[in-house]
Every structure is written in C-alpha cells, then in structure tokens.
Simulated scan of single mutants.
Amino acid sequence: MRPSLKLVAALTPFGAGAMGVNLFFASLIASLIGSWLGWPVLTPWQAAAGGLVIGLPATYAFACHIERLKTEAEGS
C-alpha cells in the first residue's frame, strides 16, 4: 500500500537526519581505518546532503511499513 504524501513529508526530516548522522559517522570510521588509503572525510554539510539523498528512499520504505501496520491494526 502506498503511503500518503503527508506521512512521507512528516517523516522525511527524521529519516534524512538519521541517514545524515549515519553517513557522517561511517565516514569518520572509514577515515580512521582507511586514512592510509587516502579516503576523504565528509564534512557535516556533505553528510547532510547525502542524508537527504539516501534518506528519501529510506523514509518512503518506512512510511510503507507504517501504512502496513495501520492497515493491519484496522483489520484486527
């Protein structure tokens, strides 16, 4: 079932924020481990932009999950 646009819009800041934080910390860990390979560290702004890009599909998937839970709760 497709989630409503309102649900996706309400969840987007949380999904994008969570993915941005995860991306930033993954970048820090990768730089600590791979600094001898020359891997770059993302700036907070790059992590926030990447969080928006990665966060939108994740937020949509989570909104679909919420819609399934709502449908299941209405049926029981």
Rank of each mutant, 00 (worst) to 15 (best):
residue 8 V to I: 09
residue 34 G to D: 07
residue 47 A to C: 04
residue 26 A to S: 12
residue 29 I to K: 11
residue 54 I to F: 13
residue 1 M to N: 14
residue 50 G to M: 05
residue 4 S to R: 05
residue 30 A to S: 15
residue 40 P to Q: 12
residue 16 A to P: 00
residue 29 I to R: 11
residue 72 E to C: 04
residue 32 L to F: 12
residue 7 L to R: 10
residue 11 L to D: 04
residue 73 A to M: 14
residue 52 L to W: 07
residue 68 R to H: 05
residue 6 K to I: 10
residue 50 G to A: 02
residue 57 P to L: 04
residue 35 S to P: 10
residue 23 L to W: 02
residue 39 W to L: 15
residue 20 G to W: 03
residue 9 A to S: 09
residue 15 G to S: 01
residue 44 P to W: 02
residue 55 G to Q: 00
residue 30 A to Y: 10
residue 9 A to M: 06
residue 6 K to E: 14
residue 62 F to H: 02
residue 60 Y to A: 10
residue 52 L to M: 13
residue 32 L to T: 13
residue 2 R to W: 08
residue 56 L to A: 01
residue 22 N to P: 07
residue 13 P to G: 07
residue 10 A to H: 06
residue 23 L to E: 03
residue 55 G to K: 00
residue 74 E to L: 14
residue 69 L to S: 10
residue 73 A to T: 10
residue 41 V to K: 13
residue 41 V to P: 06
residue 5 L to R: 14
residue 7 L to D: 08
residue 9 A to Q: 02
residue 65 H to N: 11
residue 70 K to A: 13
residue 51 G to V: 01
residue 65 H to F: 14
residue 62 F to P: 01
residue 12 T to S: 13
residue 76 S to L: 11
residue 27 S to E: 03
residue 34 G to I: 04
residue 71 T to F: 07
residue 50 G to E: 02
residue 6 K to P: 08
residue 24 F to T: 01
residue 73 A to P: 05
residue 47 A to H: 03
residue 43 T to A: 11
residue 53 V to M: 01
residue 5 L to D: 15
residue 30 A to H: 13
residue 64 C to W: 07
residue 2 R to S: 11
residue 3 P to W: 00
residue 42 L to I: 09
residue 34 G to M: 05
residue 21 V to I: 10
residue 50 G to R: 01
residue 16 A to W: 01
residue 66 I to C: 09
residue 37 L to W: 13
residue 38 G to N: 02
residue 75 G to V: 09
residue 62 F to W: 06
residue 55 G to P: 00
residue 13 P to V: 03
residue 40 P to G: 15
